[in-house]
């Protein structure tokens, strides 16, 4: 916010002098601009409707009866509001168990990534040790491994290590990511080293300096890792398909996917599926609205208004 401040009073002055020069032309542009602005608004509102309406009719669809959901999918207000779908999710389907598993995994993965990624990022940015550049180069190389080709490899290693079909197998492989290490390293590179000098002179050890001086300063980057990790592990599907098979270890993504593909005998019950989709989205949607400013802020303070 501080950077553009001196520009703001400049801008209108400049345009005023411009518009004062050819007064006739200004009028024509004004009328044209107004109609094009109106058209722009109409297009944007139409598009926003296309983006939002599917979610609205999903919520309303989850409150309809099976028959009404299939026959009148477009209607926004159900003729008879019923919570049968939600009730069934919690009484006849193990939805609560899935949600518990998803939460456990997401919390563990998020804590692990915040800790391990920041530790590695700090070491690669600040601490001098032999092999540092090689390790960093290796992380950069690992960045480009596409996630989808890891399905078979991950299954193989989890079986070899006896971690297949355990919470450990679902959580440990996700505890750190090269992208997270990279983000943290970039961040630590951007804050001046002199900040640690005082603590260094006071004789604080490396871990102490990291924990009580450097980490509190890294909050913006840690928040980024936090959002990405929670959202990523909550929404993860592929890894949990290949890391487990017991129904007791189903996460929401795996359980609901089975519900959709009819493996649990719920093939055409759209209100049930929609209710599951609505409920499983709540945590990430809440997270999104809490950190909305941070997520949508595209540049560091260069935004006007």
């Amino acid at each position: 916010m501080s950077a553009p401040a001196p520009e703001v009073p400049n801008a209108p002055k400049q345009s005023r002098t411009v518009s004062a020069k050819p007064p006739k032309r200004r009028k024509r542009i004004g009328a044209k601009a107004r109609s094009s602005m109106l058209l722009g608004y109409l297009i944007l509102i139409g598009l926003a409707l296309i983006y939002i309406y599917p979610f609205l009719i999903s919520i309303s669809g989850s409150l309809k009866t099976d028959a009404e959901a299939t026959q009148d999918a477009l209607g926004l207000i159900p003729q008879t509001i019923t919570f049968a779908a939600y009730e069934r999710l919690f009484t006849r389907e193990p939805f609560a168990l899935w949600a518990g598993n998803s939460m456990l995994v997401a919390v563990c993965v998020t804590i692990g990534r915040v800790l391990f990624d920041s530790m590695a990022g700090y070491a690669l940015s600040r601490l001098r040790f032999r092999g540092r550049t090689v390790i960093f180069a290796a992380f950069i190389a690992v960045l480009s491994v596409p996630g989808v080709v890891l399905l078979i490899p991950r299954f193989l290693i989890l079986s070899e290590l006896g971690l297949y079909d355990t919470y450990g197998g679902m959580i440990i492989p996700l505890l750190s990511t090269a992208a997270g290490v990279f983000i943290m390293k970039q961040f630590f590179d951007s804050i001046p080293e002199s900040i640690e000098e005082a603590a260094k002179i006071d004789g604080a050890g490396t871990f102490r300096r990291f924990w009580s001086v450097v980490l509190p300063m890294a909050t913006p980057a840690l928040v980024t890792i936090f959002i990405l990790s929670f959202q990523g592990s909550w929404n993860e599907l592929g890894h949990f398909i290949v890391a487990r098979q017991s129904p007791e270890l189903n996460t929401l993504t795996v359980g609901v996917a089975q519900l959709v593909s009819g493996q649990l005998g719920a093939g055409n019950q759209f209100p049930l599926q929609l209710a599951a989709a609505v409920l499983m989205s709540i945590p990430v949607v809440v997270l999104f609205f809490i950190f909305q400013r941070r997520i949508m802020n595209t540049t560091a303070g260069a935004e006007k208004g």
Partner: peptide, 16 residues
């Protein structure tokens, strides 16, 4: 924001 599983459910419903 939301998961691919939830989005597929929504799209399956929209494109019945």
């Amino acid at each position: 924001v939301t998961s691919s599983v939830a989005i597929v459910i929504v799209f399956q419903f929209l494109f019945l």
